[in-house]
Design a protein around this nucleic acid. Structure first.
Lengths: 405, 405
DNA sequence: CGTTTATGTTCTACCGGAGCACAAAAGCGG
DNA sequence: CCGCTTTTGTGCTCCGGTAGAACATAAACG
């Protein structure tokens, strides 16, 4: 997308902006642990400077001075700092099986949420988005006083043109060329228009950081989001790679076997045909409406059909992911969505396949981990992404006016 | 590798360092086109500030004031600036078929080079590196006065642990666990120890920028380096993705057909088995020592065996690259090495396969382009990487002492 | 040859961090 | 209970760096 390198000369205000961002980020990384002096130590700046920066952020509501516990060390007690509790991000998600709205504050806490489960395959975009808008409006209306929504995001299971706010195609919803903003704009009073994004990218972000600026357990990983289809994302140094148009991560359509079954996408032998939710359940002989939990209990009970289906999925995942790891050298795989609860069953075979097919496995063995099982991870990620605007450029949010993007 | 985000507070000297780097980079991007006033306009700084920064860089030898041509516009004529001609990078390369040494200056000009072709498969690392060292010493001895080598790199066709300066394994050389610095250290007087890197990564860099800081025709592309094996690299926003350990880009071992032939790497149906130099020539019935030029002329003459072999390679490349494009969303493929001269023959089929198997092809059709045919692109890339240290932090090179890394 | 126009230079003003001194708020020890 | 120690927070001056304007310079144009 961007070059990652500013081409504009740095002036002194840039310096201050940079340092404000660094202070905010340092506090976000260790909420409640840093004081003004701690910030100075962490950044290597003079105490006076750090104090001035902190004061400014506190005045703007981006940082809070929190109550201190019982004084442990001697010396004047520090005033612990935490990310402000007023700035919040609005995350929304539409998936084949649910609609979700979630509001996160700068500390990463869920301030409010609404989830609504419903089979939305083939649904009418206008109707579904209107439902989402109503849920969103309810959530916004119920927010505590003082909470300021600084941005909004919408996770969608398909190819999104973020620049134009356009969902190009979401196969499992049956949607094409939908512009969510047109429906949502009027329904969310006082909130910015949600920026659409790919569900898997955003879910991966919720794994990469648990709260704005607070790194999760993994910093480099390949994320697999098993919904009805299989989406994915590669995360490097805590950043989701979105590619040149934002369409990266379509791991579900990596070819596992060119002689394999046809895929609606036009290719053959796509991973989705082997490890997608429907394919997996069908191969195991589990009714489609039973879900992966049933598959799991059958496999744990020793059902041979279930085990065979899981082995097949592990094999297909192994072929596809080995390719990804060979190309990207990110030897950690996090399984999310319906694959998360199957991780224990898939891992042994999958790690075997990866060890065999990844060139560098001799020196660093690829590992498979389970992602969180919180529903609607995409909504969380969307809220986190919205809040990132604050971390990136705190100065914009210090002035009284909450300028939207 | 790193987080891409400094955690240290910015002080005023940081500001100056940033701006010096920006000035240098701006001049490198447009050598000979910018004056002091031009720099001020490009960076948006005051003219006085820009002039002061330029003066400092000129005094340090990082910028040169070059002769101006005939005055075109009216007004006081500008003094055009160009990257300094004294700082230089030393790039070296060992491949299965050649040893190369190349010195590039900050303007991207080849100051000196030595190439030596020889079949080095199964060669003794010590002997070959000693040969490389001798060539390097000759090149260094012949450098014009005033040229200062600021860094050195060594492109190697295998897995490199850059942190420890260790070549883990280079299958086509038959080398394992080689530490080039041990041999080279004493042989290159007055030059820093070459930092090893992967050949494909470095060759890709030479495509991404033609001179330090001067972007090449593509900013986002997947590079394929057809040597005996097939290496590769993904370049995003002009930056080569090296992965978490620097082992990214092993496209040659992406699985094209799990039921395909065994590969020495332990996997099956690797791309290399279909589109590697030896596999390709063998499939076409061309003698191994004849090379791709012979294959090309046969195919252009209509030889059915040659065409079949190329179609097979295009198919395999299509399957593997479609996977890469699906995952990374980098819809430009640059073919280098022996594949470069076969581009015209491979492109039609390859683009067809990509169009069919890439999910987003409907909205943006993947394209295939030919890389340069300059020999030893890895050496060029290694020299460019060495020079990057200057662009990243010019301040280090302004003081008289040429502190090595 | 004066005017016009753009470049390069010099000077002051302002901004922001560094560094120091000092006040404040706790624990520790008598 | 009181002074000492220790750490935090605050106020001050100094210094480095950019902004901006005024001025000098070097060409082309009429």
């Amino acid at each position: 997308m961007d070059d990652g390198r500013a081409t504009t000369g740095a002036r002194q205000s840039t310096l201050r902006a940079t340092n404000l961002a660094l202070v905010l980020r340092a506090v976000c990384a260790d909420p409640g642990e840093l004081s003004r002096a701690g910030v100075a130590a962490a950044l290597g700046t003079a105490r006076g400077t750090a104090a001035r920066l902190v004061d400014e952020l506190v005045a703007g509501g981006l940082l809070d001075e929190v109550e201190r516990g019982p004084a442990a060390r001697r010396g004047r007690p520090a005033t612990p700092l935490a990310p402000g509790s007023r700035p919040a991000g609005l995350g929304m998600q539409v998936d084949a099986g649910l609609v979700a709205v979630r509001v996160l504050d700068l500390r990463g806490r869920t301030v409010a949420e609404r989830l609504h489960e419903e089979d939305l395959r083939g649904s009418d975009p206008g109707t579904t988005l209107a439902l989402l808008g109503r849920l969103g409006a309810e959530v916004l209306a119920g927010l505590p006083d003082g909470v300021r929504v600084v941005g909004a995001g919408l996770a969608l299971p398909g190819l999104v043109d973020a620049g134009r706010g356009l969902l190009l195609r979401a196969p499992n919803l049956g949607w094409s060329r939908v512009r969510p903003a047109e429906v949502l704009a009027g329904l969310l009073p006082g909130a910015p228009v949600p920026v659409p994004g790919n569900e898997a990218d955003l879910a991966a972000r919720s794994v990469a950081e648990h709260a704005p600026g607070r790194p999760g357990p993994h910093r480099d990983f390949v994320y697999l989001s098993g919904q009805i289809g299989i989406g994915g994302a590669a995360v490097l140094a805590g950043r989701v790679m979105t590619g040149s148009s934002g369409w990266a991560g379509e791991i579900g359509h990596v070819c596992v076997d060119p002689a394999g079954p046809d895929c609606p996408c036009g290719s053959t032998g796509c991973l989705e045909r082997y490890a997608g939710r429907l394919a997996l359940l069908a191969a195991a002989g589990v009714p489609a409406d039973a879900g992966p939990a049933e598959l799991r209990s059958r496999a744990e009970a020793g059902d041979p059909g279930a085990r065979r289906a899981l082995d097949g999925a592990a094999w297909a995942l192994g072929v596809a992911l080995a390719g990804v790891v060979n190309v990207l050298d990110i030897p950690t795989v996090v399984l999310g969505g319906h694959l998360a609860e199957l991780t224990a069953l898939l891992r042994p075979r999958l790690e075997e396949h990866l060890a065999r097919r990844v060139l560098s496995a001799r020196w660093r063995r690829p590992e498979v981990a389970a992602g969180g099982t919180t529903p609607a991870a995409g909504a969380t990620g969307a809220a986190l992404r919205a809040l990132d605007a604050v971390l990136e450029d705190p100065v914009r949010w210090l002035g009284g006016s909450p300028q939207p993007v």
